[in-house]
Each structure stands twice: as structure tokens, then as C-alpha cells.
Design a protein around this nucleic acid. Structure first.
Lengths: 126, 126
DNA sequence: CGGTATCCGCTTAGATACTG
DNA sequence: CAGTATCTAAGCGGATACCG
């Protein structure tokens, strides 16, 4: 979900939460950020870590994260070329939030399963 | 961003964060949830609170939140009809996270503005 | 190795009209 | 009042091919 990236500055005060989604809402961005929270990595390493993402999408998502100031891109003028991605300080500030999203997501899945189980029991009368 | 709602159960362990986006990532969901964090509200009140959302989208987003167990829908058999939406207990558990998203969003916007200002100064040499 | 360019389909979401 | 149905445009994202 891109949510009109250009308008972050123009967004009203009351939608600060929307800003977060506009920045991490891309399909692969949370995965990328989580991987970079582990340390600096090369483009190829990111690809291997996310085998199902296409090269095009990985590049685009990284560029957007870079434009948003969350990820830095360092090109080493070598042959063959080497490009390393790392979190910026701003990117690091997402660590706590991502951790809490992870915790809530984990809780929610267990919650839903338990709920489904209860519903099943209620339906069968057991 | 819907991120294939049906597959929440099937998602791998490592993407608990994705689960959160699959649930609150809809274009108007955070706004809806924030409004319902203030208390129970009727459909029309939600519309007034979000003047730019179309009726169709509001209905759809509410249905998805309901399907995800975050929002309850109560229909009062009156004429004219009255429908009230409220957070479920599961929905309430998002309060902290939404609060933190708000805080981070607010910080991020100030951070970006300060950054843009610094870049401007650097560019003009002042 | 780490990209870009092009094409195309699917989903998302807006506008509008109608209904119990 | 609180929806549903239909049509449509835009954009997100996948597949593929080519490049420095």
C-alpha cells in the first residue's frame, strides 16, 4: 500500500498513523527492514533471504525505503559491483515498533485459532 | 493493502508482522479503529468523521474488520435502521500499537522536515 | 552482480444508482 | 439510515528481457 507517498508532508495531523503505513506498507518492506535489523546486507543476500520476491520489486522497495530515509545504499566501485544496504538511524527507530507488531501478530494468530476452535465446539455442541 | 486476507493462518511464522498489515492495512482501517477507540459509534457517525470515504468503502472496510474479529456490528431492528460499531476485546488490544504508530509517525514527520531544512542549508552553504 | 525497461493482469478503490 | 450492485480508472506487482 503506497498511500500517495508524496503527500506525507501534506497529510493532516490526525493521520500520523497513516504515515507509518505509507512508509512500511509496501509488500516487502517489513521483511526487508526485519532483515536489515540483523545487520548490513548485500542486494544478493536480501534476494536469497526472500526467495519469492522478484528482483524488480526488491529494487523498487529498497529505493522507496531509501527515499524515505530509512535505508542507506552504498555502492562499491568494484568489478563485479557490490551494493550494501543498511538501516539509517531513522530506520533503527522502527525496531521497537516492528518488535511489537511481531508480538501482536503472534498473539492474534493464536487468538484466532483458539476462537475458531471454540466456535467449532459450540457448533458441534461438544 | 490487503495482503491476501485468507492466508493469515497459512502465513509462515516469520511474518507475524505481515499479519498486522493484513488486518489494519486497509486504506481506512486505522482511521476507523482510532475512531472506535473513542467509543461505540453508528455508521453515519463514522461517515461524518471521515467525510472523504465513500459509503461503499466504509462498509467494506468495516466488514473486513468484523471478519477479522476486531470490530463488532450490532443491528437494531428499528425503523429507520440503526447499526452500531464497536471494538471487540481483540480490537482493544490494538490500542497500544496504534498509539505507538501515532507517536512514531509524529516523530518521523518532524524528523523529515528537519532533515529537509538541513539539506537546504547545506545546499545553499548557509 | 545488481540493476532497468517494457508489457500486462489483478486488485483496490472511486462514482453512481438503486434498495429494505 | 445503512446499506448493495455495477462500472470503471489507477496503481501495484509479476514475468520477461536486456544492460553496465
Amino acid at each position: 500500500m503506497r498511500r500517495e507517498r508524496e503527500s506525507v508532508d501534506a497529510m493532516a495531523e490526525w493521520c500520523n498513523t497513516e504515515v507509518v503505513l505509507s512508509v512500511v506498507g509496501g509488500k516487502w518492506k517489513l521483511l526487508i527492514l526485519r532483515y536489515l535489523l540483523l545487520g548490513t546486507h548485500r542486494f544478493g543476500e536480501l534476494r536469497q533471504a526472500m526467495p519469492t520476491v522478484t528482483q524488480r520489486m526488491l529494487t523498487r522497495q529498497l529505493r522507496e525505503l531509501e527515499d524515505d530515509g530509512l535505508v542507506s545504499r552504498t555502492v562499491y566501485p568494484e568489478v563485479p559491483p557490490r551494493v550494501e544496504y543498511a538501516l539509517t538511524e531513522a530506520g533503527e527507530t522502527l525496531r521497537d515498533i516492528i518488535g511489537q507488531l511481531d508480538t501482536w501478530g503472534s498473539w492474534y494468530r493464536r487468538h484466532r485459532k483458539a476462537q475458531a476452535r471454540d466456535d467449532g465446539q459450540a457448533a458441534t455442541g461438544t
